[in-house]
Amino acid sequence: MVEIPAGEVELRDDRRKIKWTAEIRPFLLARYPVTVGQYDTINEQIRHTSDDELKPVVNISWHEAISFCNLLSQKEGLKVCYSVSSDGEQVICDWESNGYRLPTEAEWQYACKAGTTGYTYGELDKIAWFEINSEGKVHEVGTREPNPWGLYDMLGNVWEWCWDVYDEKVYGSYRIFRGGSWAEEERGCGATCRRRSHPTFCIDDLGFRVAKSF
């Protein structure tokens, strides 16, 4: 986990043409997306081959990512962050918990930019796996250059689920994911690029990384 300092970040929604500023408290963010090996170990299952162990886990829904966070917290003796209703529709986050959780959208963007001001934190071909250089597949984590704060694969390789609801009035329970993927064109792999989908949605270029409050 990497210590992310306090600060603030400006976010924008191009669809609604609005901007807002979010204050960021210090937090911890995983250096890499959750890998296949980590996911299978914590869930005590073998869903993948050994050749995939160091690749980001994909085809994971938002609900599955939340469940992984709680299970990881339990296994480490930490207080879980998420309370889930019996029908699975309502999820409440305890922000004071010492357990694992998904980053907020603001935390994710702030950590991705790592003090830089551009759309990307470096030359995309060097920092990300995307359409041009990925050969149409996901790659092992940590094989591109990190951002200035030592975080790998924040852009490209796999999209990453965030905690936030996108626009409840229009999209209901849709959640946000960030960062672009191996299948995206260059414009889809930027620090401010936003996508969203239903929390049950899963696909072969969407994963997640874990965060933790101090």
Rank of each mutant, 00 (worst) to 15 (best):
V84T: 07
F201E: 00
F208V: 10
G142M: 07
W159N: 06
C69I: 07
L206N: 00
Y110K: 04
E10W: 11
T192Q: 15
L78R: 10
W62G: 02
D164V: 08
D153G: 03
Y119Q: 15
D87K: 04
E96F: 12
I60T: 02
V36C: 02
D167M: 03
K79P: 00
I127V: 08
W129K: 10
C162A: 14
G99H: 03
S86D: 10
R16V: 09
E10Q: 11
T49S: 00
V91G: 06
Y82C: 05
V2C: 04
L11Q: 09
Y121G: 07
P199W: 06
I66G: 04
D167Q: 07
V170T: 08
G156T: 09
K17C: 14
Q45E: 15
L151D: 00
G88W: 04
G172A: 05
L54G: 13
G179K: 01
L102P: 00
I46P: 15
S50N: 09
E185Q: 09
P103Q: 09
D204Q: 01
K169G: 11
I4S: 14
D205R: 14
P199Q: 15
G118V: 14
T21P: 05
C162P: 11
A183Y: 12
C202V: 10
F201P: 05
W95A: 12
C202P: 11
E107W: 12
H198T: 10
Y100E: 01
P33R: 08
L155W: 03
P56F: 09
Y121H: 08
L28Q: 06
E184P: 11
S83P: 00
E10Y: 08
W182P: 02
W108P: 01
K137P: 02
A111D: 05
F27W: 03
S73H: 02
Y171F: 03
S67N: 13
L54R: 10
Y174A: 01
D204H: 05
A65P: 01
E107Q: 15
R175V: 00
P199A: 13
E89C: 11
K169T: 13
A111M: 07
E76K: 07
F130K: 06
V91I: 15
E160D: 03
R47P: 14
N147D: 01
E184D: 13
F214V: 13
E44Y: 11
L72D: 04
C202I: 10
E168G: 07
R209L: 07
D40S: 08
T41E: 14
E89M: 15
M154H: 07
D153Y: 02
A128Y: 12
F201W: 04
V141C: 07
D40L: 07
D125P: 15
A22I: 03
V2Q: 03
R101M: 00
Y119G: 14
T49K: 03
W163L: 12
